[in-house]
Computed example of a mutant assay.
Amino acid sequence: MVVLVDGKPLPDLKDNNVVFMDAFYKEFDSTLGKAAREFRKKPVKHVSNKDITLYVDQHEYAVLCHDSSAVISKLGSDMATTCHIVTLYHKDTKVAAVAHFDGPAKASATDPVTKQGMTDMVHDMLKEIKLRIRMGDGEPESIIKLELNIVCGFCDKRNLSHMLSDHLLKDFETFKSPDGFPPVQFELTMFCSSKWNNKKVEPDQEEPFNCWIVGGVVCDAKTGQIMPAQFDDDARTPVIARRGARCISEVELYPNIYSVQDNCFILRPYSYVSKPTDIPQLLSLSCAELKKKISTSPNAEASGFCLYTRASLQFIQDNPDPMKSVFSVGPLKLQAQIMDELLTWQ
């Protein structure tokens, strides 16, 4: 067993997603369910660029740590509907990771892209922990214990959140450490997701629909504490349209967007896998129409969805071959700096 909840293992992984998740909710309602209900009541942290927080966009992850040389020691993400935001934390070395997983766009018994993204995130975190221990920030361990939190998602009509919850829990449970690293044990301390992050919305003269309660998270690498969060526009940086274009065009790999050693944001080169062919038409649509065309859950999208989707679509239209127009000299690297108490990227 790799994932534990107060010392208890997860239900039988052989069960299908419906049986497994039903057993999960029943088994842990008094612990994780209670924690989720309390978490949903916490005030939402409105994150601005004054908060010096690294923004992780959809289909990305980042690893960082808190120490005297770190420019940034907080990270988070938001605008998650059917998506899940995952945080990991190693208490001794103060290494933290955040990922924004979106899962497959349709029902699937397996999800190799999410599994690979999760694996890559944990591998990068283990490398950073190993480096910190060598530097004297912690003691060598026979088992590396990581605090695991899974947040966001709701009871959507297509059960995409439900399936993503199932995939992620099983992927963490079956994780195997790479050669040269101790085994990992994930201590699941928060699961405010899917069924435990759902509310019924009943608008006037419209059909009721399900919606999320918590749509974003911020994690403090100094303490490991997580809070419900919503990022201001000036905090969703840098180059958010370029990053959104990568996601829209279905590039499968989950990239690590930050170098701890260099205090540097990195956007690695990518080519579009499947870009929309009707971008001019999409850009001309109303917000409601655009949501129906692009979103997995049109009724539940965050307020900034259309603005950021249009910016990403415009970037794709203006850069039909980003390997030539954007990445001709390699990855984009931007140094994190604090100027006038604001996070900037140079």
Score class of each variant (00 low, 15 high):
F20H: 06
R37H: 11
L148E: 02
K45S: 07
G215I: 02
P178Y: 10
Y272V: 04
V239H: 13
K14W: 01
G117R: 12
E207I: 09
D111M: 05
G138P: 04
A62N: 08
R268Q: 13
D78F: 03
L267E: 12
V3E: 04
S165K: 02
D234Q: 08
D102A: 09
E139G: 02
H46C: 02
Q225Y: 11
F154E: 05
P228N: 12
L13W: 03
K106V: 13
M125F: 13
D321T: 12
R242K: 13
V19P: 01
D171E: 12
T114A: 14
T189Y: 00
Y308D: 05
S325R: 12
Q58A: 15
D278E: 11
R158L: 11
K42S: 09
E341M: 06
K200H: 07
S69R: 15
R246A: 04
T174Y: 00
T189Q: 12
D57R: 10
N256P: 00
G103M: 10
K199N: 07
G117Q: 10
L146S: 02
S328Y: 08
K34L: 10
K94Y: 04
D120T: 14
R310F: 06
N263Y: 01
E173K: 02
A336R: 03
M323Q: 14
R246D: 08
D67T: 07
D234F: 08
I213T: 14
T82A: 06
L64G: 08
F154I: 01
C192V: 06
N159A: 11
R132F: 11
H100L: 05
R243I: 09
A35I: 11
G304V: 08
I248C: 02
L13Y: 02
S194C: 13
G224D: 12
K324F: 09
M135Q: 15
L282S: 07
E38K: 14
K91F: 03
T87E: 10
C287N: 14
P331M: 08
A300H: 05
K222Q: 14
M323F: 02
I144G: 01
K34Q: 09
K45F: 12
F315L: 13
M79P: 01
G216D: 09
V329C: 11
F20I: 02
L64H: 09
F186K: 03
N16G: 04
N299V: 00
W345N: 05
M163V: 06
S194P: 03
V5T: 04
D12N: 15
C192N: 10
D57W: 00
T174A: 11
E139R: 15
L54M: 12
S69D: 14
M323G: 15
S295R: 10
M125E: 07
G33E: 04
N49K: 15
V44H: 07
Q185C: 13
D102W: 13
P104V: 07
L126T: 05
E289C: 01
V329T: 15
V326H: 06
Q335K: 15
K292L: 14
D179R: 14
V329M: 08
E139A: 10
F209K: 01
G103A: 09
I240A: 11
N210Y: 15
C306E: 11
M125D: 01
R268L: 03
P276E: 02
D204Q: 13
T309F: 03
D321E: 14
I143N: 07
Y270G: 02
S73P: 00
S297F: 11
H162D: 05
D166P: 02
S30Y: 08
C211N: 15
V63K: 07
N319S: 10
A302S: 15
Q205K: 15
L285P: 09
V218D: 06
V273G: 01
N319M: 09
